[in-house]
């Protein structure tokens, strides 16, 4: 906790201030052509269209978390794989250079 208490008030203030300024800038996105176009088309959830999916109540609570595990886990695994490949390649290159 002692690390957290280190001048936390001024730091929290800074983080919040910067975040609020950036957020206000983000809100101005609604004035863009892009936003106007989406508003005109109207937006509705693509998944909820049929509204008659027959899934059990338990699944209804569990599936959102399954989705999260997949959407977080697979990129995590892929990124680890890419990093391993880069390390491996670097090793090969440096070994070849040496001789």
């Amino acid at each position: 906790m002692k690390y957290l208490k280190n001048s936390w008030q001024s730091r929290t203030f800074t983080v919040l201030l910067v975040s609020i300024v950036v957020s206000v800038l983000l809100v101005t996105l609604e004035q863009t052509q892009w936003a106007e176009q989406i508003n005109q088309q109207g937006y509705s959830h693509s998944g909820g269209g049929d509204g008659q999916r027959n899934i059990s109540t338990i699944l209804m609570y569990v599936l959102p978390f399954v989705k999260e595990f997949i959407l977080i886990g697979i990129p995590l695994g892929l990124a680890l794989l890419v990093m391993k490949l880069i390390t491996g390649l670097k090793f090969l290159v440096s070994r070849n250079k040496k001789g």
Binding site: E68, L71, I72, I74, P75, L76, G77, A79, L80, M83
Partner: peptide, 12 residues
């Protein structure tokens, strides 16, 4: 979510 996955991979 995928962005967080890569964030976590960086500090794996």
């Amino acid at each position: 979510m995928p962005m967080l996955g890569v964030h976590l991979a960086l500090y794996w």
